[in-house]
């Protein structure tokens, strides 16, 4: 038995909003792979829960008419990984969520839950930051959409107001079209481990594949919340596709990141790894985009 005070099950988004409004103390449970573990650990013991796991309308990936990729917040990691739209347009997201936990965790874990925890190590988050994802939130006042950078407020805290829940993650066409990306998770084990550092890069090359038109890079665990390395992005923009660009891009990330010392890894070590994996992820993204690095 879990130490739960009360459980309310929502069957629709409207029902979830009204249950959350009626029970302001209640916490949302999606797949539960974090919430139920925290209840077991005593951290959230005695909580009132609103389960949204039964809202099937929040499952699945769709390509909207304007080319926006829409991921329902309850879509499991394994369904994202196997989805044809994801595979075709933004395969790097499938690869990133394929690194979460182990197979059973990827079946229960949801992308909405992963982002709503506000945890910097979430494998999906850095990639979503790199894609300029938009978070869709539904609440008593209706629907609002905000950039993922604004959704994360601080460690463990996201912008969900009373009565609100996350209902979708959107990647607009202008963010994905023409871009190729790569994600690197640096962890001690290949499975069931939390990233020491996660790095997601995507690039857009010019028509002739010789110039970096745009580059985006985001990290998990390089700060209290996922973050973009903007000076590195600026360094690469408009530069020729060559080894020098890769090196300068990678070195520039140190202006943007501020990892901390923890029992998992020291700050100096994380900084070193950050530069190395930035270079590797960037290189891979360029190669996937058809660029040749001499």
């Amino acid at each position: 038995m879990y130490d739960i005070k009360a459980l309310y099950e929502a069957r629709s988004v409207e029902e979830a909003v009204s249950l959350l409004t009626e029970h302001p103390e209640a916490q949302i449970i999606a797949g539960g792979s974090d919430v139920l573990v925290q209840i077991r650990e005593g951290k959230r013991a005695g909580a009132e829960l609103v389960s949204i796991y039964g809202i099937d309308a929040l499952r699945g990936v769709r390509l909207e008419e304007d080319g926006t990729i829409r991921i329902g917040s309850l879509t499991s990691f394994s369904h994202i990984e196997a989805d044809t739209i994801i595979k075709e347009k933004i395969p790097v997201l499938g690869e990133a969520v394929g690194k979460v936990g182990g197979p059973q965790i990827r079946n229960i874990g949801t992308i909405g839950g992963n982002t709503c925890n506000g945890v910097t190590s979430a494998d999906s988050a850095s990639t979503l930051f790199a894609w300029d994802a938009i978070i869709e939130i539904t609440g008593p006042e209706g629907v609002r959409r905000i950039p993922i950078q604004d959704f994360y407020i601080k460690a463990g805290k996201v912008d969900l107001k009373p009565g609100e829940l996350q209902t979708g993650i959107l990647i607009p066409k202008k963010s994905w079209e023409g871009y190729t990306g790569h994600y690197i998770k640096y962890a001690m084990r290949e499975a069931m481990d939390i990233a020491n550092l996660g790095c997601s890069v995507n690039v857009k090359l010019s028509e002739d594949k010789r110039t970096i038109e745009d580059a985006r890079i985001a990290y998990g665990v390089a700060g209290p919340i996922p973050l973009r390395a903007v000076s590195a992005e600026e360094t690469a923009k408009g530069r020729p596709v060559d080894k020098k660009t890769v090196d300068e891009f990678a070195a520039a990330v140190l202006n943007d990141i501020h990892p901390r010392d923890s029992w998992r890894a020291a700050k100096a070590f994380r900084e070193h790894i950050a530069v190395v994996i930035a270079g590797r992820a960037f290189t891979q993204a360029v190669i996937l985009g058809g660029g040749v690095l001499s």
């Binding site: 459980l7 539960g32 792979s33 139920l36 389960s51 796991y53 197979p103 079946n107 229960i108």
Partner: peptide
């Protein structure tokens, strides 16, 4: 504690029975 639910593997220890 792994079992199949609708054909997919789940750790039943972190799965609410009501689901």
């Amino acid at each position: 504690c792994n079992v199949l639910v609708n054909g997919e593997c789940f750790n039943s220890c972190i799965y609410l029975a009501v689901w």
